[in-house]
Amino acid sequence: MTATMMSPARPPYDAQLADALRRYVGAEWERDVAVDGLRRLAGGTAHETWAFDVHDGYRGETHPLVLRRDVDQGMLDTDLAIEFELLTALRGLGIAVPRPWWCDGSGPLLGRPFMIVSRVDGTDIRKHLAAHPDTDGPRLGLQLVRLQNRLHQVDDLRPELPSGLPRRGPEGELAEWDRLIRQSGIEPGPLVGAALAWLRDHLPPTREWRLVHGDFKTNNLLFGADGAITVLDWEMAHLGDPVEDLAWTMLWSTRFDLVGGLLSPEDYLAAYEAESGREIDAATLLFWRVLALVKLAAIFLTGVSRDGPVPPTQHLMGRGLHHIEAQLADLLLTALHGTGNR
């Protein structure tokens, strides 16, 4: 009985969205198309993501696509137009990312700004590892390190990169996440406060400006049927210090993750150093590891403080702050004892 009370609004909403997509793609291709299989996908911090198929009767083709659309209650505000331009640039540079099809920054056709990209056939590496415990972890780990380093080979002088791609070093990243924490209006507690103060006093220099993915972890890496790995979720990408990316990757540390799963933290860092030819400074890495936790706290706090009713999902994520605090305590103790041990 209650389910009947809750469900009536959903099918029309999906049907309306499918119809809007059919009209939009049909207008772009200047012919009638059919849309089916529309379903919402997990993942993404700032956008809602939908999978759907477009059937092009004229050419007899089916195109698996993904719609990424702004949401009112997202955990972050990011710019879809820049992400779209970045995907276009990365494909030009030979980096495996989903093919970008269309982007509409004004969004009247689908109600909000959106972009549509190809849906890559594959399984994210986290799920792959869960389903295939016999995977050669160290080998795959080294493959991912090579991929991550390849992204970091893209420097700020590349003319292909979108001009609006944010350029944020330690100071800029700290200011951004600090701003979001303040904007949340939630008192984050002594450990986040102490971490913010410690970060302000320990800003490392940025020795090189590179493409930082901002969310490089196994669930954003898709294993294709051909064994190729596609990098997804570029919503937090910017130009910055590549060590920032390493610290964020190190934050995720179960057996299904790159660090802690495929490679130990020590082996991960050693492999990256060998691959990139860069020596990772322990103090710089510690700075970015503390900042990674502050960033996660900012994302969670933003999620629970948006205007309007907070969905249970985001409220649930917000309670993860206790875990972040526990880890900040450990890292601040590490900082106190000296940063020689990374």
Partner: peptide, 28 residues
């Protein structure tokens, strides 16, 4: 403060186990 935070880990279900300075992305 770290002990206070660890005592609250059962108040959330985002991260199932405590691992020093690492987050369970699988759980998230």
């Amino acid at each position: 403060l770290g002990a206070h935070a660890r005592s609250r880990l059962s108040w959330q279900s985002v991260f199932p186990v405590y691992a020093p300075a690492g987050v369970d992305s699988h759980a998230v």
